[in-house]
Design a protein around this nucleic acid. Structure first.
Lengths: 344, 344
DNA sequence: AAGTTTCCATGAAGCGCTTCCACAAGCCAT
DNA sequence: ATGGCTTGTGGAAGCGCTTCATGGAAACTT
């Protein structure tokens, strides 16, 4: 039933080559003649051979694994981020270990644990505010670290310019007739994560309105958690303040979705009586025709992985910053602009 | 700086014993004289030795690792579950690999991957509906599997009697004056997970009301997602249907929290004008004085781990079912019962 | 033509552990 | 005392891989 797995020896025998050659083929070492490489690859294929990662780790003295620490929050953002990271790592025959941060205690335990020491050559930390939680903003590890969706003077950082995204939103919505409203997503109560992204978005948004000379009364802002129901509550609140048409910057697609739902329930036409603009570029935004400020999340993940691999291969330069720019995608939820098609 | 880690050889030398003896101490093998064991343990302590898990895995031919597959949803439920699992595994020197199921595609890829083959001796699958997604409700793996927060005729299952929990809720709330309302948490849209727990709770709840001869009009039910904002929307909706006092079964603590928030905003006293009963036994329930139907989640996790270890050690019996019972915890949100203290 | 360099390939050594056979020492019953 | 047990202990063998010293053959030199 459970046939023993073939080893590198069998592959070598079958291909009629030495052990070392098989290993070199596996590791993409250049010094292998093309014909030989093909012979080995064929043998691997025929035997259904897969290298034993533990043997590799113990012989190589490395773990060939990158850990991604991320908030234990179910969002498309993290799914896409990991997709991006994984793509790059697979090419280099690296494994990915996901570490959802369920609690502060678990994180610290993990960083001090044997697991990390033996199972990680490098770390990617997502959306996490280091300065809040670690002395000097420095993780207690000697492995290379790259931050994503976060910034730090200590480590390479990959992030989206959320402020710019907010500005795009403001400039765009200001073009429409009707009152302007905004929903701000609340920060995490435990402050574990850097949810300043939402504040940044809002700051950019307000700045853009101010630049256009559009006033924004305080009571046009609604604060809620990251959930569609928050959007529904918000729209009901907004409708007490002004009559349609309304222009709503929802701060996040998840919330925008709720605004759309509630508009439908109330018989208001999206893109006409209620214009909604989200943020994130969530896959469902396309499905429901939600305009949004999209972030290139996969690309951000891939870039983070690249930076980390460079560090793991010995690069020693000062911390690098990679800033990504968001892109406004116009869909039915904001319909067509008043006059000509929108050109920023 | 990065001093080389001590190995089992150094430990053996320092303790003045053989290699095998150190290994035996590490693995709790009985045939070691107590004095010897102490000597070895002291040497380990002094050297700060930690065994290399990869070496262990390759020599032992096993991975000494259990994978927990769980929905990528941030709830206390999963945090507590893992806590319970981990406690049992640590004792047996097993590692825990968390695998948040970000998508169906990822799960299937994972199950067919080398990672699983080399990194897992057993699987714990949480809240996952197998029959929906796998031919014959059987996972494509030869490793032992235990389900938790789910049931299956194929595998050992550990779960809470949600129906009973709902019944407890119904019997309890029926004792109070005022109208009865309930919130049902919506199932996942992608049906990936077995969220029938919420239906079961509601079924038990309605059954209890019926048994007491209490009618429950359809419009007293509000359906929403698992978020506090859902609770807030629900309470506003309920207040359109009846005037206080109201008795609300919220279906989940997270939702109950929103009901409490909104009650406060509207100036209604919890436990008097609005009685709220949650479900889960979330830690914050205690903080905010929320009555709830508590589940022993840690214990469920621990039990699942035990069942799995037994399977991994060769136990061959038919699938086992372990049913846990919830417990009603009375707090300020339902105040004191009308007459005597509540005794079920 | 002989020497030098480059290119490929080999397989032993070694990574840090578990397992298992061998053996020593102590114990008991004869 | 002798022969069996039992209980502890030592260390060689081996897990599947990477690395590296070694060397043969081909491709350049001069």
């Amino acid at each position: 039933m459970k046939r023993k797995k073939p080893t590198i020896h069998e592959v070598a025998a079958r291909a009629g080559v030495g052990l070392g050659t098989v290993s070199r083929v596996l590791n993409n070492h250049p010094a292998v003649r093309p014909e030989t490489r093909v012979r080995v690859l064929r043998a691997i294929e025929e035997l259904g051979y897969t290298p034993n990662p533990h043997a590799r780790r113990i012989a190589g003295g490395r773990s060939y694994t990158v850990s991604v620490l991320l908030p234990f929050v179910a969002t498309e953002f993290y799914r896409r981020l990991i997709e991006g990271v994984e793509g790059v790592l697979l090419e280099k025959r690296y494994d990915l270990a996901l570490f959802p941060i369920l609690s502060q205690a678990r994180l610290k335990r993990y960083l001090e644990s044997t697991t990390l020491a033996y199972l990680t050559d490098g770390l990617i930390l997502a959306s996490y505010d280091l300065t809040e939680h670690f002395e000097g903003g420095r993780l207690p590890t000697d492995r290379p670290v790259v931050l994503v969706d976060a910034k730090s003077p200590r480590y390479d950082s990959v992030y989206l310019d959320n402020h710019l995204g907010g500005r795009l939103a403001g400039e765009y919505l200001a073009r429409f007739p009707g009152a302007i409203f905004a929903i701000k997503v609340e920060e995490e109560p435990d402050k574990a994560f850097r949810h300043t992204v939402f504040s940044e978005r809002m700051a950019g948004f307000l700045e853009a309105l101010a630049a256009q000379g559009r006033p924004f009364p305080k009571e046009h802002l609604f604060v809620t958690r990251l959930s569609p129901e928050g959007g529904r509550l918000a729209l009901r609140y907004f409708l007490e303040k002004a009559s349609p048409p309304l222009n709503v910057f929802a701060g996040a697609d998840q919330v925008a979705l709720g605004v759309l739902e509630e508009a439908e329930r109330l018989g208001l036409t999206p893109g006409k009586e209620v214009r909604v603009l989200g943020f994130d570029g969530h896959p469902f935004a396309e499905e429901v025709g939600l305009s949004t400020i999209a972030q290139p999340v996969e690309a951000m993940g891939a870039r983070a992985a690249q930076l980390l691999l460079e560090r793991m291969e010995g690069y020693k330069g000062p911390p690098r910053e990679v800033r990504f720019e968001p892109l406004l995608i116009e869909r039915a939820s904001t319909a067509t602009p008043p006059s000509a098609p929108y050109v920023p």
